[in-house]
Amino acid sequence: MLELVTTKLEDVANWGRKFSLFSYPFVTACCGMEFMSVAAPKYDIARFGAEFPRFSPRQSDLLMIVGTITEKQGPALKRVYDQMAEPKWVIAFGVCASTGGFYQNYHAMPGADQVIPVDVYIPGCPPRPEQVLDALILLQERVARRDGHSQLRLKREKIVLEQARAREDD
């Protein structure tokens, strides 16, 4: 019975979370121009409840990696990610943040997922604003399904903990 209540409670929380994603735009490069367009009047990310960029990692729950991540930038990205509170979600905005794109060289990192886990990858160099909105909807569905990477990890850790406890009981 208690399990049912907590599950339903989490569903309600997730419903709330998916429409109030506070994003932290980690803007590094060209994609930032398109990020501006997404936030600006014509495409208006506000319609999806993610309009308010929070320039403090501690107050945000969606990390948008907008642009190329270089080796020099890597530690900063990891630090920003670590500072965010759980549960958190990550979107790799554009092909550079996803795989490095056509920058395959000594200083461009082949994708932000070399450093931190990523939930949704948006292709395109840079992606069109419509694609970004599509990715946001995709992420909202995952949030509601409890499929975000940090949600899954929490779930996994809980299972591991329960198994360990069961073994101790034996």
């Binding site: 890597g74 530690p75 395959q104 200083h107 990192m109 070399q114």
Partner: peptide, 13 residues
């Protein structure tokens, strides 16, 4: 003589 893709990572997962 420096290879184009020789990376020297500072941080990895």
């Amino acid at each position: 003589d420096y290879p184009k893709e020789k990376r020297q990572p500072l941080v990895r997962r």
